[in-house]
Each structure stands twice: as C-alpha cells, then as structure tokens.
C-alpha cells in the first residue's frame, strides 16, 4: 500500500476511501442517534410526537381556512405528508450544517474523509423518519383507509430520494460555510423558518394567486417532493415534467454543495 500526501488541489471524490470508512459512518450515525434521546423519558417517541402535535395544531388552526381541494386529502393527512419530508430536510440541514463545527475537536486531531460527518448527520435523521413513517401510516389508515398503498410504495422512495439529495447538497454547503463563517450558526435556524413558509407544507400551492411566486415555489425540490407524495396518496402519478425538474434541481444542489465541501475540506482543520 503506497500513497502520497501532497498539496491540496483538484476535486477528486475518493469513493473507495469513503467505502473503506463505512464503519465509521455507522458509528457516527449510531452516536448521533443514541445521544439525541439520551436522558429523555420518552426517547424516540419524540420523533412521533413532534410531527403529530404539529399536525394537531395546524389542523385546529388552519384546516377551516384553507382550500385543499387540489389534493382531495383530509387536512391532517395533507399536513402530515408535508411534515414528514419537511422534517428530514429541516433536521438534516441543521444537523449537517452544524456538524463540522460540533465535531471540530475530532477534525483537528485525526484524519478521515470529512464527508462522513455530514453524511452520518443526515443518516441519523432517517432513523427519525422511519419512526415518523409508522405514525404516518397510522394516520393514513385513520383518515383515509382507501389510500393507494401501491403508489405510496413507489413514490415515497422517489420523493424521499429527492429530499435527501437536496438536504445533502444544502447540508454540505452550509457545513463548509459554517466552518469559515460562524454566522451560519445563526443563519441556519432562521433560514429553516423562512423556508417553511416558502414550502407548501402547511398550505396548498393553490392558495397562491401570484403566478410569479408560484413559478418560484415550483423550483423548490422539497415542494416538488411533497407534491409527488401527496399525489401518491390518492394514487395519482406525478407528471414526468415535475419528477424530472425535481431530480434535476436536487442534483444540481447536490453537486454544488458537494463540490464546495470538497474544495474547502482540506482546510477545515486549520479553520475549525
């Protein structure tokens, strides 16, 4: 085994190295998950309670005022289907975005592919996702026993994939920026709040009358992913244009985020 250590340049992705370190990804993810609910009474139940309570609150306050004809979904199902993907995105970018700073003491003392840290941060949120998913299925059975199980089985992974690509791209980008400019520690939570309003999680796109704003919202891959999932509940197939557009934009975000992370990665130990 011979290798060289040279001045940093270029943008190669060493997938083999990442694969060699797969166990570390596992242990970091395990750590994040374990720590998250340590010393809590309810433990992982929080992963269910948070979206569930939000669903209840939104239902009580908004259901009567919003026109959700476009999907033909009961409002609780409507809002839960939005929240389940939104939570992956929101928790994902906040965990990944802060991960490099949180783990700076490790970064400064030992080498491993830095990408492992945001990856395991995002994988950790998937554990929450699977727990929430169980709750979602219960909610579905309760409000809409006639939901289309088959199309959910096909389209949920697709919408989750789009969400993950987006989350990963944005998360890595923010993580790298956060190492250099600690302002992002404050920008990230604020950004998530703003994005919640810019993503049709609790309201349907149809309430927006302004065509320009609608166009802009359509560019949001998370909005697209939620759209695909909501359609799936009724057994509606999404238009290929929508799927293509979401995949494309999330892929662009993914590549830009990853490249920026890769480019700045070398100097994390000097800056952190």
């Amino acid at each position: 085994m011979e290798y060289e250590i040279k001045p940093a340049k270029g943008l190669q992705f060493n997938l083999k190295e990442l694969w060699d370190f797969r166990e570390l990804i596992y242990f970091f993810t395990l750590r994040d998950v374990k720590i998250k609910y340590k010393q809590t009474v309810l433990g992982a139940l929080w992963a269910i309670l948070q979206p569930f309570l939000l669903m209840v609150i939104f239902t009580v306050f908004f259901a009567a005022h919003l026109d959700i004809q476009s999907y033909n979904l009961p409002y609780p199902v409507f809002v839960f289907s939005g929240l389940i993907l939104w939570n992956v995105f929101a928790t994902g970018i906040s965990t990944a975005g802060n991960s490099m700073v949180v783990n700076s003491n490790i970064i400064k003392k030992i080498y491993f592919p830095r990408l492992i840290i945001p990856i395991s941060g995002i994988l950790g949120t998937l554990v929450d996702f699977s727990v929430t998913l169980l709750m979602f299925i219960v909610v579905l059975f309760y409000y809409l026993p006639s939901f289309s199980f088959l199309s959910i089985c096909v389209l949920l992974p697709l919408s989750l994939f789009i969400t993950l690509m987006t989350t990963f791209g944005a998360g890595c980008f923010l993580a790298a920026l956060n190492v250099k400019y600690r302002d992002f520690r404050y920008i990230i939570p604020f950004m998530i709040q703003v994005l919640l309003f810019l993503t049709p999680v609790i309201y349907p796109v149809s309430i927006i009358k302004n065509e320009g704003v609608k166009m802009l919202l359509n560019l949001n891959p998370i909005a697209g992913a939620i759209d695909i999932l909501r359609g799936a509940i009724n057994g509606t197939s999404p238009s290929l244009a929508l799927v293509g557009q979401c995949l494309l934009i999330s892929f662009i975000l993914f590549s830009v985020g990853l490249s920026y992370f890769r480019k700045t990665e070398y100097y994390f130990a000097d800056l952190a």
């Binding site: 085994m1 060289e4 250590i5 040279k6 001045p7 400064k108 003392k109 080498y111």
Partner: peptide, 23 residues
Amino acid sequence: VLSKITPPTEGKIISRGRIASLL
C-alpha cells in the same frame, strides 16, 4: 501534515504503510 489532517503547502510525502496518528 503526516497524519493528513492538514495538507502541506509544498512538497510531498510518500507513505508505504497504514498510518495511525495519536495526537
């Protein structure tokens, strides 16, 4: 630099074995 935590500005290191660092 030897443990790959930070890259050198110039020069290179050739290593013919697995390095573990205990900083």
